[in-house]
Amino acid sequence: MAMLSESKHTLGTFEHALENLRNNVMMMASQTERSLNRALKGLMDRDDKLAALAIADDEEIDQLEKQIDKDGIELLLRFQPVASDLRRVVSAMKLSSNLERIADQATNIARKALKLNKHPALPEILLLTPMQDHAIAMFRDSVDAYVREDAQAARAIIPQDDALDKMNAQVSRQLIDRMARDPEQLRGYINLMFVARHLERVGDHATNIAEDAVYAVAAEDIRHQQVAARA
């Protein structure tokens, strides 16, 4: 059975470097969440200022990703961590990559919001509300499972991605139906479809984060299990 040791390392610099890496991941996660919230609020409330802020957030998040990679590589180089320490470093670096891509999805949503906000509001935007709530919940829960080192909670997130995929398919069908009936609004509906797609991608990255959390805690690689089972 895998374990994550709670006691401190004898080598203080190593302890400090691991702590610093973890803090940066947590900071990046909180900035990503803020950016995603701003983008979605900018879309739903037709607030260009919030959408612009979400786009601006991306630069800082990109820098944090680079910092986490740099710190992770230095940790591997200087301290050659093993066992749970190694898993912590590897998962932190993988997590940062997924957070950065979620932030990219936030930027994409914000850009679509700026385009949609130039035209009269589409009532169909409300079709996205359940997807938005589901994607944000998946993201929050996956980061929370990682921070609390809770493998059970992380595992519980994986099946939720299927629900999000189904929501995306349903929203797409509904929007295609609207396009047929009201071609005037084609551009707007296409942008809403893109937003649905971006939310679906947020769910994919949240799933990756949950998988990395399971690896960090339980030393178990649970990725691509459905594919393996089918093979």
């Binding site: 374990m3 040791s5 390392h9 004898t10 190593f14 093993v82």
Partner: peptide, 8 residues
């Protein structure tokens, strides 16, 4: 775990 990770 504690020995190889330098905790004691």
């Amino acid at each position: 775990e504690d020995y190889i990770t330098g905790r004691f």
